[in-house]
Design a protein around this nucleic acid. Structure first.
Lengths: 122, 122
DNA sequence: CTTGCATCTGACGTCAATGTCAGGTCTTAG
DNA sequence: CTAAGACCTGACATTGACGTCAGATGCAAG
């Protein structure tokens, strides 16, 4: 599987895949001519990376986490434990912030509705 | 109240306040010598802006929303209605994504715990 | 009056993930 | 074989919300 196929099947750009490799998030074997070769399991890996990005993790954080998933050792498992809980807390807090912000927006929506009905009444 | 005080009391940087003004989110009166003067109510406004930023709104979107809050007219109220609902939906979706991502992280945490206990048993 | 801190404008720096372009090589369908 | 399209590396461009610096001016305390 070449890079364009993986990009299409994982729903990301070719540029992003090369960037992931540059950041150590993704590995590829190379054809004799130097073209990247992927197997089907990379699709899942890329989607997984995407989800972590979606959660707001940086490529650096992801790069620190992935080795622990790939081949757990005592050291990286301990380091990962800290990271994982930090990120989990961060996400939880972010969700709370967003919920509050959405509540604020809802108040604006109420105000807006009042304005609209008042203006429409003229 | 000068810009440094407002910055301190609203919990943002002086640079940010000037940026907000540049983006049309904040207005200031000027002293004869050109220094920005603020009243206490700007504190709430800045905090409000911060919450919208926290919700992921861009300065452009905020700039489009604020006039409707400040002085509602038929036109901006209609435009704002669309914006508000779009942003509300976006936030809701974002919350869902984050929740999913947190679930994914929780699975990693479980895996990590297994690794740790397995490694600790040696 | 001076010293030192706050403020002003304007401009360039930053960071992260990606877009985009250039100039060259590979692969594949016809 | 050839042309088109995918791929390669390397590099510069982009976006947004600021940080930071320079050089000039304002302001309050001693």
């Amino acid at each position: 599987m070449r890079i364009g196929d993986l990009a299409a099947r994982a729903g990301v750009s070719v540029r992003s895949l090369r960037y992931y490799e540059e950041q150590g998030l993704l590995v590829s074997t190379r054809s004799p001519s130097g073209q990247r070769q992927y197997t089907d399991k990379e699709i899942g890996r890329v989607r997984f990376i995407q989800r972590l990005y979606g959660a707001g993790l940086s490529s650096r954080t992801i790069a620190e986490l992935l080795p622990c998933v790939d081949s757990p050792t005592a050291q990286n498992a301990d380091a990962a434990w800290t990271q994982l809980h930090q990120e989990r807390d961060r996400i939880t807090q972010h969700i709370e912030e967003l919920t509050q912000a959405r509540d604020a927006l809802d108040q604006l929506i109420v105000i807006n509705r009042e304005h609209r009905s008042r203006l429409a009444a003229r």
